[in-house]
């Protein structure tokens, strides 16, 4: 019986493992392209080996420095807002006593998370377009209209702001959960001592959810290299490559448009390697400082 059970378990693992091998592990061997001058007609076995040449090219390109810094700057601000805004929102709604308002607002703010960036980007494009409402307001006070998505000065700010707009509600779920976990006795005791609403917020609520804020921040660490491909791909254009081009969009254009497979793969490899280190670090931090783990 015991032996038979083992066979069943192997059988269960097989289909998923088979697909993982083909679509995840086989491509991992494809990273050798990063060390070759890959030519599609010759294939991986026939292409010339160039060692670290592609990486040298990447590090000397002015563009790539720009792309790395763009990625990190955009994701830094996104991560920052992804904790500040949802936490503030959760704290705000925690103060709302009307149950109907509370639950309807919650349901509504989760909604944008479920829209695709294709849909959300066309809304963003419209709102920030030259004829859009934002420029209408700017025009009404007598200022020149601004091409928000076409100027380097504004592009990043729009990216960071719209990401927060789309995701703040959904990101606040975890803080709602943490808030309900705070012992109501603490508030009662504080009320008896004559603490004001604000004092309770500072001395009970915030310390109560601080651990979860730190955990969520740590878990965002690996995303520092992502910066949100779907959003940027749907909003950027060549005018704002200087501030908006990130690792993933660069890899996409290198590989799929310019057919520079080797350079694209090399940048991808740098990203996956650093990404792996970051995930492991984040997991280590989370397990060390809390009773949770990422995987």
């Amino acid at each position: 019986m015991r032996k038979k059970k083992q066979i069943y378990y192997h059988l269960m693992m097989f289909p998923g493992l088979f697909l993982l091998i083909i679509f995840t592990f086989v491509p991992m061997f494809g990273v050798v392209m990063a060390f070759q001058n890959y030519i599609p007609a010759k294939g991986i076995l026939g292409s010339k080996w160039v060692g670290l040449q592609n990486f040298k090219t990447i590090f000397t390109l002015r563009d790539s420095r720009q792309i790395f810094s763009n990625t990190i700057i955009i994701s830094f601000w996104k991560i920052f807002l992804k904790s500040v805004v949802p936490v503030s929102f959760a704290l705000l709604i925690n103060e709302v006593e009307n149950k109907f308002v509370k639950s309807s607002v919650q349901t509504i703010v989760y909604l944008p998370h479920f829209l695709s960036w294709v849909v959300f980007a066309s809304v963003v494009q419209m709102i920030f377009s030259l004829e859009g409402p934002v420029n209408k307001v700017i025009g009404s006070v007598g200022l020149e209209p601004i091409m928000f998505l076409g100027t380097n000065q504004w592009f990043r700010k729009i990216i960071i702001f719209t990401e927060s707009w789309k995701e703040f509600g959904y990101a606040s779920i975890v803080y709602f959960a943490a808030l309900t976990g705070i012992d109501p006795g603490l508030y009662e005791a504080a009320s008896i001592d004559g603490a004001t609403r604000f004092k309770k917020l500072i001395h009970i609520t915030l310390p109560g959810i601080l651990p979860i804020i730190l955990i969520m921040l740590t878990m965002e660490l690996p995303n520092i290299l992502s910066a949100g491909f779907d959003q940027i791909y749907n909003l950027y254009n060549p005018l704002v490559y200087d501030t908006g081009d990130i690792l993933d969009t660069f890899v996409y254009r290198m590989g799929m448009t310019k057919r520079q497979y080797s350079i694209g793969t090399a940048v991808g490899l740098i990203k996956s390697t650093l990404g792996m280190i970051l995930i492991l670090t984040a997991n280590k931090l989370v397990t060390t400082f809390s009773d949770r783990r990422m995987f």
């Binding site: 995840t24 491509p27 494809g30 590989g255």
Partner: peptide
């Protein structure tokens, strides 16, 4: 399974496969 989660070949090698 964990390794598959931590590391990937990236967009281009996957496309080629």
């Amino acid at each position: 399974v964990l390794f598959a989660m931590l590391f990937n070949g990236g967009m281009i090698p996957t496309y080629l496969v």
